[in-house]
């Protein structure tokens, strides 16, 4: 695994007040216990859409985790789409972070 880049470190440490979603980026898979997160630029505001195989029992928690993660990163604008296949919170958080990184060219794709 590569060391985190400076941008990655700075994003994770919350050094930027705002992090933009500059381009469409995807992280994660549709495997069971994973979540696939797609981010797209938006100039209107921040919108989150959740699909989940465990929606009835965990939908609210998933949405809260996604929003909490975006807030921590400083994302103010963007369309964030999550297709969850029963991932744990830590996985959802990691996938959201990764997708945002990729939209900033701060992480390689293919994972």
């Amino acid at each position: 695994m590569r060391y985190p880049t400076n941008t990655q470190k700075n994003i994770l440490k919350g050094r930027f007040e705002t992090v933009n979603i500059n381009a469409e980026a995807v992280a994660g898979t549709l495997e069971s216990s994973d979540a696939q997160v797609t981010v797209r630029p938006s100039d209107r505001g921040l919108f989150v859409h959740i699909e989940s195989s465990v929606m009835n029992q965990y939908g609210r928690q998933i949405k809260a985790t996604v929003i909490e993660t975006l807030k921590g990163l400083g994302v103010r604008f963007g369309n964030v789409e999550v297709v969850d296949k029963g991932a744990l919170d830590c996985t959802i958080k990691a996938r959201v972070e990764c997708a945002v990184m990729r939209s900033n060219d701060a992480s390689e794709s293919g994972v």
């Binding site: 505001g45 959740i50 009835n56 609210r60």
Partner: peptide, 16 residues
Amino acid sequence: KIKPLDVNAEGEEVKF
């Protein structure tokens, strides 16, 4: 009959 949960209020903007 299950009442499906919908957390995606159409077009609702997320505000911190």
